[in-house]
């Protein structure tokens, strides 16, 4: 058994995540749907913390709740007002089918897998471990080339964005 704090946090966070995910498609206003999606991302980040995946939680906050949501809000604010309601579309039925299939697969895996249960000392040791140190040392020692190439990738993304938007300007 985990400590009560983590269990309580898990239920609170999953409640927030599921409720805001419901708001995403119940809301008639597209911008409200986007903001509910951001809240859902934040709840998911909290859930990652309860799974002792702290780096993924931080990446979730920075990438999804930060960057992706900024892109979503911009995409909504830059579209004409007329096309901005969260209307029903032809994709409802395929969406429901895909969602049901995905829920079925995940549920099947969750039930089918024989989850190992930790007892005694192992719980105390493995209740919560941080992953950032391991990722940091791995990035800086064996995978330093990948670390630097990631910055080249980001550089090419930045240059590409500028070239696409400002192609008419002289250098």
């Amino acid at each position: 058994m985990e400590s009560t704090g983590i269990v309580l946090g898990f239920w609170l966070l999953s409640g927030v995540t599921v409720a805001s995910a419901l708001l995403v498609f119940l809301s008639r206003n597209l911008l409200h749907a986007v903001l509910a999606l951001v809240l859902s991302f934040l709840g998911m980040a909290g859930l990652f913390v309860t799974l002792s995946a702290d780096f993924i939680a931080v990446a979730q906050v920075l990438i999804y709740a930060g960057a992706i949501s900024v892109l979503l809000v911009f995409a909504v604010m830059l579209t004409p007002l007329a096309s901005r309601d969260n209307a029903n579309s032809l994709f409802v039925l395929p969406g429901v089918l895909i969602g049901a299939a995905f829920a079925g697969i995940v549920g099947f895996v969750a039930i089918d897998v024989d989850w190992p249960e930790l007892t005694g000392k192992a719980v105390l040791g493995r209740d919560f471990t941080t992953t950032v140190q391991g990722i940091g040392s791995a990035l800086l020692d064996p995978y330093v080339l990948a670390f630097e190439i990631a910055s080249v990738l980001l550089l090419s993304a930045l240059v590409g964005a500028i070239v696409l938007v400002r192609e008419d300007e002289p250098a």
């Binding site: 780096f55 931080v58 990446a59 920075l62 990438i63 930060g66 960057a67 900024v70 892109l71 911009f74 604010m77 830059l78 950032v132 140190q133 990722i135 940091g136 040392s137 990035l139 800086l140 670390f147 990631a150 910055s151 980001l154 993304a157 930045l158 964005a161 500028i162 938007v165 400002r166």
Partner: peptide
Amino acid sequence: YYLFALGFVIFDVEVVFLYPWAVV
């Protein structure tokens, strides 16, 4: 405004890479 959003996203991803570096 979209160019500024893209710039923000790129430097945001940079911060994700620097975060584990800052810890170790």
